[in-house]
Write a protein that binds this DNA or RNA. Sequence first.
RNA 1: GGGUCUGUGGUCUAGUGGUUAUGACACCGCCCUUACACGGCGUUGAUCGAGGGUUCAAAUCCCUCCAGACCCA
Length: 830
Amino acid sequence: MPAPTLNDKRWSIDLEKRIQEAHAEDPQVYAQRYAFNPDSGKEFFVIDTPPPYPSGTWHIGAVAQYSMIDVIARSQRLLGKEVYFPWGVDRNGINIEFTVEKNTKRKMKTYDRAEFLELCKTTIETFTQAMRETARRVGLSCDFEREYLTDSPEYRAVTQSIFVELFRNGSIIEDLRPNIYDPVEGTTIADAEVERLPRRTNLVDVEWVCEDGTKIAISTTRPEMICACGVVVVHPDDERYTHLVGKQIQLPLPVDGRETSVEIKTHPSVKSDFGSGVLMVCSFGDQNDVAVFRELGLTPFQAINLEGKMTKLAGPFAGQTVLEARKSAIEHLESTGKIINIEQREQDIPVSERGKNPVEIILLKEWYVRQTHTQDRIREHAEQIEFHPPRNKQFLMDWMDNISIDWPISRRRWYHTEIPIWYCDDEDKIIVPPTGIYVQPWCQEPPEGSQVLDRKSREIIGSFDEMKQALGTIVGEEKVFDTWMDSSNSNLFVSGYLNQPEVFEKAFPTALRPQGKEIVRTWLYYTLLKSTLLLDQPGFKHVWIDGLGMDPWGRKMSKSLGNGIDADSVLECGAGGRTGSWKVKGPDKTVSLRANKIGSECFRLWKACDAQVGDDFHINPEEIEKKYFGVLTKLFNVARFASQFEVPSNLDDAPEGLAVEDEWILAEFQTTMATVEKAWTHLDIYTATQALKTFGTGILPSHYLEMVKSRLYDEDKAAAWTLHRMVRDFMTMFTPVCPFFTHHISSTIYGASAVDVDAFPSQPYPSVASGTARGDELRALSASIQTFNGDTWGHKKEQGISLNQPVSGVEIPKELEPFTAILTRMHHLE
RNA sequence: GGGUCUGUGGUCUAGUGGUUAUGACACCGCCCUUACACGGCGUUGAUCGAGGGUUCAAAUCCCUCCAGACCCA
C-alpha cells in the first residue's frame, strides 16, 4: 500500500501551531497573501473592522465575532476581491484614564497633563501587545503591517480635519445647553453613554403653600433641587387643581438670588395618578424637566456647579454636594414641619456608563454635532445598505426614533483627540489648523498654514501666518472629543479619506461594517451620521451585526458574575498535550468544564457552524470540542486517505471513462459548490459551512469512498482524479473557515496552498452540473443509494456478518441498476 | 413601565402555511471494516414556551400570557 503524503496521523493543536508559526514567519510571504494592494486591478472589498479597545484580556465573544470577520475577508479573497482587512486598535478614551488613575491611585486632574498622557500611552501599549497576539492566534488575516492606532497623530489628524470640515459646513455648532454631566469625572457625556442602575432613594412628600393658602403635597426624590424650581405643573385635565392654575406657590425651602415663589401651570406630561398629581419642574432634575423648560420657554437656573456642588441659589446649602444637600434639605423641611411622608423606594437612576456615577444635567457651553435635522436623510441612506441579518436593522431604526437632541462631542478629559481650535481675544474669530495636521491646542500655537475663521459665519477671514500680529492673545481649546467622534471616522480612515484620494474614490462606501449589536446606537449610528453630514452618502454597502457571546447558560459574561471564559485558554487548549479546564459560575453552582483540544481552527468552525449571524451564542468549551473537533478529524482523514493515491498530473480536466458513481458524486459535489459560492457571496457563513460539513463528513466518506475504495487500490485513474479533484476544491472552499487546516492539506498534497486561491473553483465536470438533465437524474438517486447502503449494513449486522464478509439475498433496487457492479463489489454481494 | 429580538428532543440547531419536524452532540446498543475507535453503524428521545384565534391546513400568520436577552423611559 502506498504511504500517505500527509504524514501526521491526525489533526492536532501542535500541528495547528506549527502551521501557524510558519505562516507568519516570512513577512514578505504574509504580505503577499493578505496585504491590501490597491493596484491589483481587482474590485475592492474594504472592511471597516471594529478596532478593539485594549483593556486587559480580549472578550472571547469579541474574538469569536472577529474570527467570523476573518471568514468574510478570506471568502471575499476567494471570490476574487481585493480585500482590505485592516487591523486597528482603539486607544482613545476614558477607560485607559481610569486604569492609570487606579494603578497610580491618583486622580487625573492632579497630574500635569503631558505627564498623564505619557502614562496612558505606555500603559495602553502593553494591553495592545497582548491583543495583537490573540489576533494572530485566532488566525486573523489582517494587514498587520499597516496597523492603525486611533491615538496616533495620523488618525487624530483625520478626526480633527473632519471636525473642521463639519464646522465649516454648518454641521457642528457650539452652544450653551443642558448637558448630561458626570460631576465625579468632571466631564460631559452623551445620551448614548448613560445607563441606569437601581438605587434605594427616599421619595419625600413635601407640603407647599399656595398664595390663597391652599396646601398641596408634591412628591420628589430630589428635594435639594427645589431651589432650581421654575414652575409647578399639573395635568390640564386634572380637575382637582383647575382652580389653582395661574396662581403663585411658595417654595418650601429658603433660596438665594431668585424669587421665592413660582407659578402653577399645566403640562400634559404630568401623571395625575403619581403622588398628589402635582409636579415640581427644576432645571434640571431629569430629561423631562429639560423638555418642560424648553416647551414653556422658562429661563433655567444653575443649581449645581461643575464640581457637583450646590450653587449660591441653594441658600443655606450652597457649597454642599448634591447628596449632602439632599440630606440637609430633608432635615430643614422636617424641622419646619413641611414633610408629610417619606418612603424608601427602589428607583433606576441615570449613571455614567464608564464611571457609574450619578449624572446631573447642567447648562454648559459645549460643541455639538447637529443631528436632529438630518434623520430622514440618514434613513434614506440606511435603506440602501444591506443588513445581515435584515432584522437587526431594527436596532438602528429604534435608536434613531429616539433622537431628540444634538450630539454633544466635547469632553473635559485628556487622553482623547483634542478639539483643534484656538480662540481669539475678541471672541469673534477662531483659528483652525490646516487639513491633515494633528494639533494639541492646550500646549501648542497654531501651526503654519492655519486659518482664521469668523466664529459665527464660519467664513475664512485670512491666514493665521499673515494675521498673527493683529490677533492679540490667543487661547487654545482645552477640551477633547468624545471617543465616538474618533471611532465614527474608522470607515473613512480605512477607505483612504484625505490620505489616499485615489483609493477612496474606489473604496467608498466601505464594503462592510461588521460589528456587535450592542454598539449599534453609538458606533454604527455615529458613522452613518458622519457620512451623511460629510458626503451625503451611505457609509457602507453591507452592515453585518452579530449577536453577543454569552456564558453556557445564556447570560452575559462579566467579571462580577464570575462566568467569563478567557479566549487564549480556549485557543491554546490542547497545545503541548495540556488540557483546558474552566471554573464557571452557573446559576446555581460553580461548574467545572473540561476539554482536551480546541485550538483556533475548531473554535472558528464552531462559530461558523453553530449559530446564524445576529443570534446571541453560548460559549461552552466542552461543547465546542465535542461537536466540532471530530469534524476536523474526519476531514483530515479523508484528505490523508486521498493522499496515499497518486495525484493525477492534470487535475483540471476530467479523464476519459469516469464511472457512474464518479459522475454521481461529482453531481452532488457541484451542487454543494453552488450552494457554497452563493453563500460566500452573500456573507452567509452559516450556510456555506454547513453545506461543506454535510458533504465532507457525510455522503463523501460514508458512501462514495466506501464505494470506490477497491477501485482506488487497483489504481483506477478515474476514481483517483475524482477524489483528488474534490478534496482539492473542497479545501479551497473551506479555507475561509479553517485556513491553517486547509493550507496544510492543500500544500502538502497538491503543492499549492488553498489560502492563495483567488478565484472560486470551477465546476469539475460541467456535464452533471445543477440544471443539466444528467446531473438531476444522478442526484435523484442519492437517497436510494444512501438507503440501500444503510439497509445492507443493517442487514449484515442483523445476520451477524462482518462488513467485509460476503452476503447473499440482497436485492439491488431497479433504479440503481447502473450501480450494480460497484455496489456488488462494495458490499461483497453474491 | 415601554420597545425590539428570541423561546423547537437532555444540549445546540434547521425549518417564515402543505406528507410522518432537519441535523449535530450527548445517551443507549452493536462493530477493530486494508483513512479515521479522536472511528463506523443503528436504536431511543420533541404534544415546536403556555393558552386562544385565523385557515381545508400552523413550529410558521394574529392576539394574550410566561421566560430570557438587548435597548429605552
